[in-house]
Design a protein around this nucleic acid. Structure first.
Lengths: 246, 246
DNA sequence: GTCAGCATACTGGTCTGACCAAGATCAGAC
DNA sequence: GTCTGATCTTGGTCAGACCAGTATGCTGAC
């Protein structure tokens, strides 16, 4: 058989994985389809059930398939949340990589805001506006303030209506959560940051509303740069109550 | 034991996976480390070996770990090829995702080129220059031309000296390979693309050399936009031998 | 004829114990 | 001191078994 031939040289796991991969890529297995049972798969491919389970588990962590207890294995619509898993592992091992990850976040957001300028709808605007208002309300609270900040940026990405960007941003932002929070704590100590936070976000919001990609990108970029500057100053203990240069 | 408690409620697979996840995220398991044997892990966690193998296989497809036959299981530096796997599956079922992924690529590259303007060293410049020359040499070859094009863009990202961006770009670019290639085939039919390709890349190169982030970003962005435009025209059959508007 | 209720077949979830092949290791021969 | 081979350990795999629920279909009551 053709399939047999294609997967002859492979070991057990590879055989099963390749078999399912073929079907999935060819489209003969579509989201929603229920796979044949593990036992059938095992006898069909001439391997043992544990091996089949390895392959199914592999597809599960890839988000391709879902194993439902006592129901069966069904093909799912690929969920990007698996990337989160991966990135969490990948970036957890390089702690000094935070600045680097931040670069990726800037990349994603700056592109997202351009798309948002084109694609955002009323609901997106409203969400952004709510997030903006919340930033003002929570400016004195480290925790809630951080969340509001995050939500604002998140709203921009969501407004881009790009699933890929949204997913990437989600996983990157997750990694930056604690650094984000620690940065927010600076706000309490240095009032100049308050106006920076509020004004900057408002400017960004306005640029999106105006559907001006260039301005939005530039403003957002500046926003990040200033945040960076604050952080740098904090590190060297040089920060004071004067505004960061703009 | 603390660990026991944390993983008490979970089923076999989850227990093992969570156990390893903890160690990996906490950093007590670092790349290069060799895990204890499957049998030991099984008895340690009170599960059977097949279950342990499921978990290890799961980590393998996530690129976190590598199972070496008759050697043992070692922690690897996370490899992006996993993402490739995932996206391959994901895109097989949602072809319209390509444009979306492209947005992410644009995001990464535009940020990368900004960093490249700041951080690129002589070696980076030389690599870029070689790639640029190669684009000119292979302008009439679909395959080699595509590779040269890819290498140029890749060189930009590498020159950013950002590991995260490089990693992300690597996985995204892999996905776009075939679309990239099909686009390159247009070159043969429509000579106007040749000048577009050569001139654009040269302009991008010059902007990096000049270490002008704004210009580099803008030029690169325009480059992508024009490529998009070509593709759009090809789709609607409207393309002709005139240059795309610039 | 219809429908509720239960038995059975089937599903995934797991375990046990076993065998194989080949790298790693160390004792013993030279 | 070096080399060789037996042994230990490793991953790779298999077969068969049990459990706990789901789905289904059959049976019997209405």
């Amino acid at each position: 058989m053709e399939l047999k031939r294609a997967s002859e040289g492979e070991k057990g796991f590879e055989k099963v994985f390749a078999f399912l991969r073929e079907r999935l890529l060819a489209g003969s297995l579509k989201p929603g389809d229920r796979l044949i049972s593990e036992r059938e798969l095992a006898t069909l491919l001439g391997v043992s059930r544990p091996i089949v389970r390895e392959a199914l588990r592999a597809l599960t962590v890839l988000g391709i398939v879902e194993i439902r207890d006592r129901i069966g294995t069904v093909v799912t619509r690929p969920d990007v949340s698996v990337l989160n898993d991966f990135f969490t592992f990948a970036l957890a091992q390089q702690a000094d990589m935070l600045d680097d990850v931040m670069q990726a976040r800037v990349a994603i957001e700056c592109q997202a805001i351009r798309l948002a300028c084109e694609r955002a709808n009323i609901a997106d605007f409203e969400r952004l506006q709510r997030a903006l208002a919340r930033i003002g309300e929570t400016i004195d609270e480290a925790d809630a303030g951080g969340m509001a900040d995050f939500d604002f940026h998140r709203s921009i990405v969501v407004a881009s209506h790009s699933e890929t960007l949204t997913v990437l941003h989600g996983s990157l932002a997750g990694l930056l959560t604690h650094s984000h929070r620690s940065r927010r704590e600076l706000v309490q100590a240095f009032p100049s940051m308050k106006t920076y936070l509020i004004d900057d976000h408002r400017r960004i919001f306005e640029a999106v509303i105006a559907r001006d990609p260039e301005r939005a990108d530039a403003t957002l970029r500046k926003h990040f740069a200033i945040g960076d500057e604050y952080r740098r100053r904090a590190v060297v203990g040089d920060i004071d109550k004067t505004s960061a240069s703009r």
